[in-house]
Simulated assay, not measured.
Amino acid sequence: MCYIRDHMQWSNEEEEAARKKVKENSAVQVLLEEQVKFEREASKYWNIFYKIHKNKFFKDRNWLLREFPEILSFDQKTEEKARESSWDHVKNSATNCFSRMYCPNVPEEKSHYVKSSGSSEGQSKTESDFSNLDSEKHKKGPMKTELFPGSNASFRILEVGCGAGNSVFPILNTLQNSPESFLYCCDFASGAVELVKSHSSYRAAQCFAFVHDVCDDGLPYPFPDGILDVILLVFVLSSIHPDRMQDVVNRLSNLLKPGGMLLFRDYGRYDKTQLRFKKGRCLSENFYVRGDGTRAYFFTKGEVHSMFCKASLDEKQNLVDHRLQVNRKKQVKMHRVWVQGKFQKPLHQTQNSSNMVSTLLSQD
C-alpha cells in the first residue's frame, strides 16, 4: 500500500544521498554518435511509445485546473463562481427544508447551463467552417483578411506536447460550456496526434490538434503570433535537448499576447526518476535516455527562472514541489520533485525592457 505526503522537505542526509546517486549514474555517458541518433530520431521513439501504449500509459491530469486556474477565461471563472454559489444556495435550501418542514421550489442545477449550451451549439456551426464570413460577429466587427482554426475565439489556449490527450480532454470537458474559448494542441509524434483526434471526446469545433516540432524554428504554427492567452508546457521541455530549450521558450513567448501566461510543470532535480537511471544512460549533465529511446532532463528552480526571464517573460510563480511516496509493504520511500512556474508576457514594451535589464544585472 502506498501513501503520499505533500510539501516534504529533505533532510541534509537525504539530499546528500541523492546527489551521490546522480554522480554515480552519470559517471558513464552515452557515446556521442548514439546521442546524435537519439536527437535525430526523437519523434520515431515517441511514435513507437504511443504505438505500444496508446492512451493507456498516463493518467488524465484532472489536477490541472487546481494548479492552473489561468486556463479558464475571465467569463468562465465568473460562471464557475456563480455556479458554485448557486449550488451552495441549493444545499442551504435543502438543509432548511428539514428544519422548517417546508421547502420552496428550487430550480434544477441544469438550468444554469441552458444559455451556455445554446451558445456552444452555435459555436460548433461557426467553427466547423472557417470560410463562413456571414456570422453576426463578422458583420459587426472588421472583416478578417485571413481565417485560421479558432479565429472566432476570444480566449485561446495551446498545449505543447499533448501526447495522447491526458490534458486535452480534462480541459475540453471544462470548456464545453465556454464557446468563446478554443484549444490548440500539438505533438511531434504523429501517432499521438492521431490518438487525440480519434478520441470520442474530441470536438473540432473547439479544438485543433496538429503535428508540430517545436524545435524547428522555421516551421509555422497554424495561427498568427501574439494571439494566445495561455500556453501549457507540462512535462514536455524535459524531453528536449538542453541546448535547444531556450530557443523553444523564446518562440513560445512570441505566440503569447500581452498579458498572456505560460504555465510550466516538469521534473525537478533529484526526482526519483533521475535517481533510478543506471550507469550508461546519461547523455549529459542531468539529461538521460530511457530504455525506449525517450529522454528526460531534470531542472532546478534557478534554471527555470533564467530560461523564461531570458524569453522576456515576467515570473509570477516558480516553486519546487516536493512529495514523498511511501510503499509500506516494501518499506521503500521515494521522493518526487517537480518544478512549477507561471510566467506572464508584459503588457507593455517598457516592462519588457526593464525585465531584461534586471535579469542581466542579476547575472553579473
Rank of each mutant, 00 (worst) to 15 (best):
M1P: 02
C2I: 12
R5A: 05
D6M: 04
D6Q: 10
H7K: 10
W10F: 12
S11M: 05
S11P: 09
N12T: 04
E15T: 07
A18Y: 13
K20G: 03
S26Q: 15
V28W: 02
V30K: 00
L32A: 10
E33Q: 09
V36H: 02
K37D: 13
K37H: 11
K37L: 14
F38N: 00
F38H: 01
E39H: 03
S43N: 13
N47D: 15
Y50K: 01
N55A: 14
K56E: 15
R61P: 04
R66K: 12
I71P: 06
S73F: 06
T78F: 11
E79W: 14
E80I: 13
E80H: 07
A82L: 15
A82S: 10
H89C: 14
K91T: 13
S93F: 04
C97E: 04
Y102F: 12
E108T: 06
E108W: 06
H112G: 07
S124F: 06
E127R: 09
E127C: 10
S128H: 12
D134Q: 09
E136A: 08
H138G: 10
H138E: 14
H138I: 08
K140D: 09
M143S: 12
N152I: 02
S154T: 15
S154H: 08
I157V: 15
V160L: 08
V160C: 09
G161I: 14
G163Q: 07
A164R: 05
G165T: 06
I171T: 15
I171S: 11
L172R: 08
P179F: 08
S181K: 09
F182S: 12
C185Y: 07
C186Y: 11
D187W: 03
F188K: 10
S190I: 09
A192T: 01
E194C: 06
K197N: 14
S201H: 09
R203K: 15
F208E: 06
G218T: 14
L219Y: 03
Y221D: 04
D225A: 07
G226W: 04
G226L: 03
I231F: 03
I231K: 05
L232P: 12
H241Y: 02
P242H: 01
N250A: 01
N250R: 13
R251A: 11
R251I: 03
L252S: 02
L255Y: 13
K257A: 03
G260I: 03
R269I: 06
K272D: 05
T273L: 10
T273Y: 08
S284C: 02
F287N: 00
Y288T: 00
R290Q: 07
G293V: 02
Y297M: 01
T300R: 05
C309L: 01
A311K: 01
S312F: 13
S312D: 07
L319T: 03
V320F: 01
R323F: 05
R323W: 02
Q325T: 05
K329S: 10
K333S: 14
M334C: 08
H335G: 04
R336I: 10
W338Y: 08
K342P: 07
H348L: 05
H348S: 07
M356I: 00
S358F: 00
T359I: 00
S362F: 00
